[in-house]
Structure formats: structure tokens, C-alpha cells
């Protein structure tokens, strides 16, 4: 029996979010629902990235005045995960904004949010 610690738990949550997000993007028909599924997917990726850098019993990787410089690199959680995730959150928001804008334009043209109807269109 594997003992479930925080890191494993968060990995499982991240995997769950990625699976739910991918499934929603692939199988749901409503475009707004697809966008919400995309936000779930990017949340899952963010959680996975933060969990990768977690150190059991570590400290926050901010060098405060009291911390000794020798103990800091051994105990601090890895900084690369948060570094990427901060950018990924911003990118997620801007991608969502672009997707919503395109959806509004397509709704004005077709009057429906169903992806199966909107994307069916035949090319000349």
C-alpha cells in the first residue's frame, strides 16, 4: 500500500483535471463548454508543474532576511515550476480571451454555439 502524501495527491488531481479537460474539449459540443474545458486542462497542467517542484518539508523559495544562505538551496522548493506556471496562467487568460472573441464572431454569423453546426461548413 503506497502512502498517499501531498505530492501524490496533487499529481492525481492534476491527472484528473487533464483527463476531464481533454475529454470535455473533445466530446462536448458547446463551444463555451469547450472553452471551460480548456481552462480546466490548463489548470491541470499548472498543478502538475507546481507539484513537480515540491519538496517534502521544504520552505518557500523566497530568500527572507532570516534564512541562512547555506540551508536555503537544500530546503527550498524548486523555483522553475512556479516560474513557468505564472506565465502559463497569463497565457491561459489571453488564449481564453481570443477563443471567446472568435466564438462571439462565429455566433453572430451562425446564431448557434454548437461546434458540430458551426464547424461543419463546406469549403469551396
Amino acid at each position: 500500500m503506497i502512502e498517499i502524501n501531498l505530492q501524490l495527491l496533487c499529481f492525481m488531481a492534476a491527472a484528473l483535471l487533464v483527463v476531464i479537460g481533454l475529454g470535455g474539449m473533445l466530446f462536448l459540443d458547446n463551444i463555451i463548454k469547450k472553452i471551460i474545458a480548456f481552462t480546466l486542462l490548463s489548470d491541470g497542467v499548472n498543478l502538475a508543474l507546481v507539484t513537480l517542484g515540491y519538496v517534502e518539508g521544504g520552505i518557500v523559495s523566497i530568500l527572507e532576511p532570516g534564512t541562512s544562505a547555506g540551508a536555503f538551496p537544500e530546503n527550498a522548493v524548486l523555483i522553475f515550476g512556479p516560474g513557468i506556471v505564472l506565465t502559463n496562467i497569463v497565457i491561459g487568460v489571453s488564449t481564453t480571451a481570443v477563443l471567446v472573441a472568435v466564438t462571439m464572431v462565429l455566433y453572430r454569423r451562425y446564431g448557434t454555439l454548437k461546434a458540430s453546426k458551426v464547424l461543419k461548413g463546406e469549403r469551396k
Binding site: 474539449m25 480548456f38 497542467v45 515550476g81 502559463n88 488564449t95 477563443l99 464547424l119
Partner: peptide, 23 residues
């Protein structure tokens, strides 16, 4: 407009993949 919608949806997937590769 359809091309933009599809391309942006896929950019979400490939961007997430590249972020994981980077990490």
C-alpha cells in the same frame, strides 16, 4: 473564423505540451 477557432484550440494543447516538456 473557423480556422482561427480550430487553430487556437489546438494551440492550447500544444502550448500545454511544450510547457510540460520544458518543465
Amino acid at each position: 473564423q473557423k480556422a482561427a477557432l480550430k487553430y487556437t484550440f489546438f494551440s492550447a494543447l500544444s502550448g500545454a505540451g511544450l510547457a510540460i516538456a520544458l518543465a
